[in-house]
């Protein structure tokens, strides 16, 4: 009886050994890579937007020179032919115009197949604003989280302008709750399907227009925003409304 008991434990141990360390290997589908690349333009005539360059706003006429421009894009999803979405896991990106490599978001391990559309969120979804310490693009080391009023700075635009009495401007725009919520989800339907084959790489080309921040506003109205509110919402959602799908590549 004793030896049976011991063998039982021995077998149990072997099973424990095999299951405890071994990572369960899935029968993987074939995969490829899909990138989302953002180009940045200034105004309707699509002049190139650059940091550290004097730009004249096409609507309010103010001259402004951006030293910082960063914004969050999150929750990338690809629409499948059956209308459901493939969700990119842990999908948080900080586009920082000082670092051009950040303007291309890369999704690896995307199942091969036909995709008919694309859905993405501008800003950081409310859940991650209330879930404690995050990592990667959402790390507080990026300086994009309000320490005293928890929540992500979803757009940070700073620079200089003669339209500001101090000579500087700083717009830290965010807000994830209630009437101040700026988080916006956009959906694009592709005209031609995105066909992803094994180990291939496809790019969804998008453009963003920082001039849109001042679509119905001006630096002269106030050169600083440091918390969520109605003006932050108006500026952020105007900027978000300027995201345009350019095509697939």
């Amino acid at each position: 009886m004793k030896s049976i008991k011991i063998s039982f434990f021995a077998i149990a141990s072997i099973i424990l050994l095999l299951t405890s360390c071994h990572k369960h290997k899935h029968e993987e589908d074939t995969v490829g890579t899909v990138k989302v690349s953002f180009s940045h333009v200034w105004g309707m005539n699509s002049a190139t937007f650059s940091l550290n360059q004097d730009l004249v706003h096409p609507m309010n006429g103010e001259t402004m020179n951006f030293t910082t421009f960063k914004y969050y894009v999150s929750n990338l999803e690809l629409k499948k032919e059956d209308g459901t979405y493939w969700k990119h896991p842990e999908s948080y990106f900080l586009v920082n115009l000082a670092d051009p490599t950040t303007a291309t978001l890369e999704m690896t391990n995307v199942p091969t197949g036909h995709y008919t559309g694309f859905r993405y969120t501008l800003g950081v979804d409310s859940l991650r604003n209330v879930s404690g310490a995050q990592t990667g693009a959402l790390s507080t080391a990026n300086g994009m989280f309000w320490s005293w009023n928890s929540g992500y700075i979803m757009i940070k635009a700073e620079g200089t302008s003669p339209a500001s009495s101090s000579g500087n401007f700083a717009y830290h725009l965010g807000g994830y709750a209630g009437t101040n919520n700026v988080v916006t989800t956009n959906t694009i339907e592709f005209t031609d399907h995105l066909e992803l084959t094994e180990n291939a790489s496809k790019t969804i080309k998008m453009s963003a227009n920082p001039a849109k921040l001042f679509h119905s506003d001006a630096i002269a109205n106030g050169s600083s925003i440091m918390m969520p509110g109605s003006r932050a919402k108006s500026m952020a959602t105007n900027f978000y409304s300027g995201f345009t799908f350019l095509g697939l590549e």
Partner: peptide, 23 residues
């Protein structure tokens, strides 16, 4: 103003009149 225990320490570390340090 701080909504989660895990990020509570961010405020004193970065506050200019407390620890005034960047993360």
């Amino acid at each position: 103003g701080v909504n989660h225990l895990e990020i509570f320490s961010l405020a004193p570390i970065t506050n200019p009149v407390e620890m005034n340090e960047s993360i």
